[in-house]
Amino acid sequence: MGYVVETIDLRAYYMLRRGSVKAVDGVNLKIGEREIVGVVGESGCGKSTLSRVLALDFIPPLKLVGGKIIIDGEDVTSIPISEARKRIAGTKISLIPQSAMNAIIPVTRVKDYIADVVKEKTGLPREKIVDMARKRFEEIGLPPIALDMYPFELSGGMRQRVLIALATLLNPSLLIADEPTSALDVSTQKMVLTTLYNVFKMGLTKSIMFITHDIATVRQIATRIVVMYAGKIVEDGPTEDLIHNPFHPYSKALMFSILTPEPEVRKRVEQTGGIAGEPPSLINPPPGCRFHPRCPYAMDVCRREEPPMIEVEKGRFVACWLYAKK
């Protein structure tokens, strides 16, 4: 099975005057066909940067420092960025950035906005694009009348669903959604998630990468979860396994910090505490394992050497010395 996207030792830093922020620092990630990959982590762990990097959205100070991005078998880091972006934008990788709909001009109708965006990518005539959009809206259960409305007339949930329709209009290989639900009320969150899931079920996109800080949300639809901490992937595994039995101490801490009205969770919260400390600065990350200053199991080796990513069980990868020793 081919990979939709594959990154090899990917490094992307924000080059600032006071130092470089190593937001994505040696990420190896493979996303296959028919996968929904949830990327979870706290603010500043590099997950949003990863999404921008995969969409080749390099706006200074963000800079690709090293590594490869292979999209549908083609190394896009070996060709000029503008050329690569032209090749992948919309058709191979489609990104819905965080709070995207707030960024569009309020005086543009939804259909004009869609036509502008898609025309720039494909050169298709406007009428054709609007027809495609109308069809797509019907397919995913959006009222086609929304096409004639202005962004501010749409509710928050509706806006996100319009963005999903727009992002999948050209049937991309990978749809990347960065926190698509976190600004919404819970009742609308479910609607947006359903739309996202339907888009996947109907094959309008081959795979989805869902970026969020909220595991409880992403676990609803993800087939696989990737946990990021301080610019690196610390754990990667199938959703159910990872939720029920997280390996990495950070994944455990993250899982234990979830408060949902469930009996299992309540029992657990009464027993366990949160973890101390805060995520490190990405300008000067700690040596060795970046989680060691907060880790209750930290050993000597953790402070010196970076743990390798190893496959503990089939399909379950973790970067932690607790497992590497075995």
Partner: peptide, 12 residues
């Protein structure tokens, strides 16, 4: 309560 995503169950 139905709309709150749960950690140990999935809607889909």
């Amino acid at each position: 309560l139905d709309s709150i995503p749960k950690l140990y169950t999935s809607w889909f």
